[in-house]
């Protein structure tokens, strides 16, 4: 079920509700790369309750996406 696109000058994602699993989850597609991520109901509720700025550490590009792979080949 499509929900819509959320676009700014910095990012563009399409969000929809995915029903492939045993329960629904939010599907987020990065429209610039096609990369897809999911958030379940509990994760979303947690996001809704995040205090101001709590998400900002995750906006450090080096944290996950833009970093050298770890020596063991892991990415996280």
């Amino acid at each position: 079920m499509g929900v819509g696109e959320v676009v700014s000058e910095f990012a563009a994602v399409a969000v929809s509700i995915d029903h492939e699993g045993n329960g629904p989850r939010l599907r987020i597609e990065d429209l610039k790369t096609g990369h897809v991520g999911y958030l379940d109901a509990l994760e979303l509720e947690t996001l809704a309750w995040l205090p101001e700025g709590a998400l900002h550490p995750l906006l450090d590009p080096s944290l996950h996406r833009w970093r050298k792979p770890a020596p063991n080949g892991g990415h996280h």
């Binding site: 450090d60 590009p61 080096s62």
Partner: peptide
């Protein structure tokens, strides 16, 4: 180069911080 800033002006991070 993808540096990110909060809307209060704080630098949040940059790609490839090594």
């Amino acid at each position: 180069h993808g540096w990110t800033f909060s809307n209060t002006g704080r630098l949040l991070g940059y790609p490839f911080n090594s």
